[in-house]
Simulated scan of single mutants.
Amino acid sequence: MSIYLASLAQLSYRWLSYLFLLQKKEMEKKTILWISLCLMVGAAFAVPHYYKESFEKVNDSEVDLYAYEPFKESEKLARLDQQASFKIAGEVPIIDGATALYPLFSAFAEATYPEDLYNPYKGPVATTTTTTPSAYSRLIKGNADLIFAAEPSSGQKKAAEEAGVELELTPIGREAFVFFVNSRNSVTDLASKDIQGIYSGDIENWKELGGKNDEIRPFQRPEDSGSQTMFIKFMEDQKIKEPETEDLAGGMGGIIEEVASYRNYKNAIGYTFRFYSTQMVRNDKIKLIAVDGIEPNIENIRSGKYPLAAEFYAVTAGTKNPNVQPLIEWILSEEGQKLVEDTGFVAVQ
């Protein structure tokens, strides 16, 4: 009997061991399957992200503003053939502005300011560029005397009103607001109504506009930037489709902090200003398109043929600096307007 029980116990042990091994193998299979599934899910998210990141971008980091720094040996900065008839003595105005206009107001500074170090990036200095949104903010807060930028957005006008200051805009030059596509895109000309259709979401494929069968990726710029303000004005009363974004600022009333405006997808469309894209960035992977059959070149801006030409401004907000108004008057003089032209813009005088 004891031998029988011992044999039965041994048999049971072997059976349980076998079951344990089967269960272990089954668990290992499930574990492998689970890990594989996790890797596949991770890859599904990661691969498109890194594929997306592999595309070239056109952004401000591609522009070396030191090449336009005043009182440096730069071949890019426009200069007069003789000494300017106006020179600032005493308190120099603190100026700021749009990145795209830095080469111009840097030229103004070199012509009229006392020679000194004027770093384009580091403040506080008399001349710097902190981009349009920041420049308007500094002006409204009284941290800048004069800025050079496109017209203010509705948000910037509201901020000035709430601060109890009045923005005074003086037109000093003209520039083209432009749309661009990938250089491989066969489309070279778009009607204004078609561009509005793209950004409203009514037109979604390039084949609708004579291009290839590719879904259109319409990118936008950050809110309150000069080009975004121009874009909203261009859209008039048309609805605007929610933009592609890479990062959304958190908190109440969060705004788009960073928009993939210039990612070089073959099927993308974006917008900027002519001088910035053709002279400062010079990226041959994008091309500017004609609007309503008119190319965005200097001749068409000057003649008024190009439909999206716009003025840019010297903007003040009640500064007490006595040199600001004389500086603006000089900018509108023959000498100042020559620098506007020589930099690559169109004069208003």
Rank of each mutant, 00 (worst) to 15 (best):
E166Y: 10
V125E: 02
N185W: 10
A144G: 03
K193F: 07
P133I: 12
I203T: 07
D145S: 15
G142N: 06
Y199R: 11
F177Y: 13
Y121S: 05
N185C: 15
F180T: 07
V178R: 13
F180W: 11
S134D: 08
G201C: 09
P218E: 01
N143A: 10
P133R: 10
R174K: 15
P152N: 14
T170C: 00
R217Y: 08
E168V: 15
A160N: 01
D214S: 09
I198E: 02
E204C: 11
I216G: 02
W206I: 07
T188G: 05
E162D: 08
A159H: 02
N143Y: 10
R184W: 00
L167R: 05
A149P: 06
R174D: 07
D214H: 12
S183K: 09
G164E: 10
D202A: 13
T128Y: 07
S137E: 11
D189T: 06
V187F: 03
D214N: 13
S134G: 06
A144K: 04
N119Y: 11
K193H: 08
I198N: 07
E166H: 12
K207T: 13
R174T: 11
Y121W: 06
P124S: 14
I198M: 07
F148Q: 02
T188W: 01
Y199G: 08
T127S: 15
A150R: 05
G164C: 07
I140C: 02
A160D: 00
T127L: 14
Q156K: 02
E166D: 13
P133A: 08
L167G: 04
G201H: 10
Q156N: 01
T128C: 06
N213Q: 05
D214C: 02
F148A: 04
D189H: 01
K212A: 00
W206V: 10
A126R: 13
D145F: 15
L139Q: 09
S183L: 01
K158E: 03
E175I: 15
V165M: 10
L167D: 01
E151H: 07
T127E: 13
R138E: 13
S154T: 07
G164Q: 11
R217W: 01
E166W: 05
F177R: 11
F179H: 03
Q196P: 11
F180N: 08
I147W: 01
A135H: 05
T129A: 02
N185F: 12
P120F: 01
K141F: 10
P133Y: 06
R217L: 12
A150F: 03
Y113G: 04
G164H: 12
L139G: 10
G123L: 03
S183T: 09
D202Y: 04
T131S: 11
V178Q: 13
A126Q: 14
G155I: 09
A144D: 02
G123F: 01
F179G: 01
S192R: 15
W206C: 05
L169R: 08
T170A: 00
A163M: 03
G201P: 10
L190K: 04
E115I: 06
T127H: 09
A163Q: 03
R217S: 04
R174W: 05
S186N: 06
K212R: 01
V125G: 12
A135R: 03
T131I: 05
Y199A: 11
K158R: 07
A150V: 03
L190Q: 04
Y121H: 04
G155L: 08
N119D: 15
R138M: 14
A135C: 13
T129K: 03
K141Y: 10
T130Y: 07
Q156T: 09
N205Y: 05
